[in-house]
């Protein structure tokens, strides 16, 4: 492998830092990530004391070659998609920092933290569909 591209360099740094100091309940399979540096699977536990306590989720991060200037595509994958007003049943997450408010100073770590926070602040489990009906 020749010298890594800037986005790969940054992803490697982020991986090291996420391994070293992950947000609570977050873990990543580093060996799998090294196979495909632009596709991360991140495990996330529902925070204690919230509606999602005891649940396990899986997040998929997909990075383009323009990362960190382009935001990563982040979706919930697997068989347990959280029921949340801002999460579609196909796993799509409605979160401004993943689209318009993305900034290259954000990281996998901070996105994970935002998603944990988004889930934790939920008062009532309701899907996007039921919100639309109201």
């Amino acid at each position: 492998m020749a010298s890594p591209s800037p986005s790969e360099r940054r992803l490697q740094k982020e991986l090291s830092s996420l391994m070293k100091d992950p947000p609570p309940g977050v873990s990543v399979d580093a060996n799998a990530v090294y196979q495909h540096l632009n596709l991360w699977n991140v495990h996330m536990k529902g925070a204690d004391g919230t509606l999602y306590q005891g649940e396990d989720f899986q997040l998929q991060f997909r990075f383009s070659s323009k990362y960190p200037f382009d935001s990563p595509e982040v979706t919930f994958v697997g068989d347990n998609i959280p029921i949340h007003p801002h999460v579609y049943s196909n796993g799509h997450i409605c979160l401004s920092i993943l689209t318009d408010d993305w900034s290259p100073a954000l990281s996998v770590q901070s996105v994970c933290l935002s998603i944990i926070s988004m889930l934790s602040s939920c008062k009532e489990k309701a899907s996007t569909l039921s919100i639309e009906k109201h």
Partner: peptide, 17 residues
């Protein structure tokens, strides 16, 4: 970082690095 293209574990990487 170039060493990480081989099988070296990232934990090693972060510790040394």
């Amino acid at each position: 970082t170039t060493a990480s293209s081989s099988n070296s574990l990232p934990t090693d990487n972060s510790k040394n690095n």
